[in-house]
Nucleic acid binder design. Structure first.
Lengths: 225, 225
DNA sequence: TGTACATCAGTGAACGCGCGTTCACTGATGTAC
DNA sequence: TGTACATCAGTGAACGCGCGTTCACTGATGTAC
């Protein structure tokens, strides 16, 4: 009987003593690979992950309690990727707050549409608070408790609109509600765009700019200066 | 060994000769029940449907080729329900085109949020054209070919905005693009609202009215008369 | 009017598969003495 | 310096389950003669 081999064909060698936690990382990576390959998290089974990583199925138990714990770890990683994409998109847009808002939103859309399987896992199940599946109250990078999935990305959106208001580029009177409207439209664009690739979608560039400006009650800098 | 009994406890009796097609209907109903109960279509397996309906599993084959065919039949039924809800919502809103537009959108949202499991199945998988799974080119009720899932509901939205433009209540210059933006926002509201029930969503009534009017470039009648 | 037969609507047992999970285990490596 | 031992990082076989699918079948009912 041959030893289990990962899909890549590479045989995994045992971690050195004290480095057992590396397998935790490999399991999450394997789960992400399966999600990418199958287009959904249904393919993430203990045995499939074990095959992908190149280990025996029971070897997962010291690292994760069950399938759900693996998926959750993958979800947290994907949220990090999404947040990073938004930050970079905003940063690349320059100093103007409206440009930064639109840049962040375009990055959100770009990440979602170019990683549909990963994005689809984020909100595929009912999620209440992060405290349900790991530490009682997980902390964000700034020490504040992260109470909701995607809260970090949403906070970026709120402050981007807030910045527009500060500089007179938006006359939003309810920044949180308007940020919610923008988020909902972005999310809908990603998920419908993924589910219905045959639909005659408008060109993303103008489309997103248009509805983001509209929902954020924002106007381009030239109109205000 | 006891004969298979449906979840309701009622024993199914064999259809009369010539009435075998009734089971087709019962199978779709059973699938919808499973979707409702589990919150997703994952629970729709041949054996689970058979148990639900109260028949032996192989009895499904003369009616449906496989699991996917059952789910597709359920999806078409759900699209019909959604379309009906929109039509009724618009009709109940009275003669004003903006009211009708908002009424239809509120009905869409209402259906989606009050039937999250059903709605979630509609766009849970990549859907190209209806021709992939049944007759080569299925026809809509008006005889035109139905090329996309949800095309009927989308057409309602387009014509609702078109009506606003006709009566001077909207200055949309691209009705299809604006309808797309509204649809995307509605879809995002339903799916995010379902996935994150703990999020502090704005009150649906004003929220939907606000973004629908904004995206459809519409204004209330008083402002225009 | 009777009767043989075809058809319809569905059954029951069986198969092989992948799954989660358990259990006792193995072999390398660091550490105490 | 040697050696016994504890620990770490996993393994391999086995279990019971639900699944899709197949196969030969059963029993009621309509129909031809």
């Amino acid at each position: 009987v041959a030893a289990p081999v990962s899909r890549t064909g590479r045989q995994r060698q045992r971690n050195a003593r004290g480095q057992g936690a590396r397998l935790t990382e490999d399991i999450v990576t394997g789960a992400l690979t399966l999600i990418e390959r199958a287009g959904s998290d249904e393919a993430v089974t203990l045995r499939a992950v074990a095959r992908e990583v190149g280990i025996a199925a029971p070897s997962i138990y010291p690292h994760f309690a069950d399938r759900d714990a693996i998926v959750m770890a993958a979800v947290l990683r994907i949220f990090d990727e999404l947040t990073n994409a938004i930050v970079q998109g905003a940063a690349a847009a320059g100093p103007d707050p409206v440009d930064r808002l639109v840049g962040g939103c375009e990055a959100y859309l770009g990440y979602g549409l170019s990683h549909p399987a990963r994005y689809g896992v984020l909100f595929s199940e009912r999620r209440t608070s992060a405290g349900d599946y790991c530490e009682p109250v997980p902390l964000g990078p700034d020490g504040r408790p992260v109470l909701e999935f995607g809260a970090e990305a949403f906070a970026l959106l709120v402050s981007a609109i807030q910045d527009c208001v500060k500089e007179g580029a938006s006359d939003s009177t309810d920044v949180v509600a308007d940020a919610t409207a923008v988020w909902v439209a972005l999310h809908g664009t990603v998920t419908l765009g993924t589910a219905l690739p045959g639909f005659p979608w408008p060109a993303p560039a103008q489309f997103v700019r248009k509805f983001v400006l509209s929902l954020a009650h924002a106007t381009v800098a030239q109109d205000h200066s």
